[in-house]
């Protein structure tokens, strides 16, 4: 239902914007029109996704009821159609009903939300620790147990930003050194920052968390699928806030081992 609503909306928007506009759209490889959260690849992201869908269905239904009643009234109770105004100005029954029913709906929403939160906050029994330090403007990653540490900064050339060169497929979402983590392992991230507040966020791996100077925050991820996942800083951190992406390669454990050995030998 929601999908069809979005589809309708999408065509409505496209129609409104006009076919002429389509012509001037940037000629990009993916014309995305993405409508929903990115496909989750960790348990947390999946729980968030399911919760998001559930709540969205609920609010969509509420929205449709409110809009339905409103448009019905607009169509039916117009003076031009000879509608006579009723005189009532309260109804205890109705008022109790529309206080109690929303309360029940909210309680129903609170239960899965609480469960999800408990899951997210459970950082115990992790397999490895990774320290993430935000700075203006990039990220530093420390593999605490391995003594491996490196910086990771935007790799998109300036000429693409200023438009002197065609923008690449991963425009603004590419970095010089990828973060590499093993699939299926619970990775605990310790987040902090050097200068101002940043927030580390890779949508497919789950929610974001603030990196705060002088303080340490934690979150965890366990990716079930190998692949490359991209994200961005999500807290305004100054001039180049828009230019501090995050790229995570999730690889098989053996591959991770080989990679970390190579990193150790590098330094």
């Amino acid at each position: 239902m929601i999908v069809s609503r979005f589809k309708k909306l999408r065509s409505a928007i496209v129609a409104t914007a006009g076919a002429g506009m389509m012509g001037i759209l940037p000629t990009v490889a993916q014309a995305e029109w993405a409508l929903n959260l990115q496909r989750p690849v960790t348990e947390i992201a999946r729980v968030q996704y399911d919760l998001h869908m559930l709540i969205m269905y609920i609010v969509t239904v509420i929205g449709i009821i409110v809009f339905g009643v409103m448009f019905y009234s607009i169509a039916k109770f117009r003076k031009s159609k000879g509608a006579e105004a009723a005189k009532f100005s309260h109804s205890t029954k109705a008022e109790v009903l529309w206080t109690v029913i929303p309360t029940l709906i909210l309680i129903a929403m609170a239960v899965p939300s609480t469960k999800a939160l408990l899951l997210m906050e459970d950082t115990t029994e992790s397999d490895m620790v990774l320290k993430v330090t935000g700075y203006q403007w990039g990220w530093q990653y420390d593999y605490l147990e391995e003594d491996v540490s490196f910086f990771s900064k935007l790799a998109t050339p300036q000429s693409q930003i200023t438009g002197n060169e065609t923008k690449g497929e991963n425009y603004l979402l590419e970095v010089d050194n990828h973060l590499v983590i093993p699939a299926g392992k619970k990775v605990r991230l310790l987040l902090t920052a050097k200068d101002v507040i940043h927030a580390w966020w890779v949508p497919q791996l789950g929610g974001k968390k603030d990196a705060i100077p002088g303080y340490i925050n934690e979150m965890w991820i366990r990716a079930d699928e190998t692949g490359t996942y991209r994200g961005q800083c999500a807290e305004l951190c100054g001039k180049d806030h828009g230019y501090m992406p995050i790229v995570v390669d999730v690889v098989e454990e053996a591959e991770y081992m080989a990679w970390i050995e190579a990193q150790k030998n590098k330094s």
Binding site: V66, V69, M70, S73, I74, F77, R78, K79, A83, E84, A85, A86, F88, S91, A94
Partner: peptide, 9 residues
């Protein structure tokens, strides 16, 4: 909404 309901709009 209830104010609009059965009004003469």
């Amino acid at each position: 909404l209830a104010t609009m309901w059965r009004g003469s709009m």
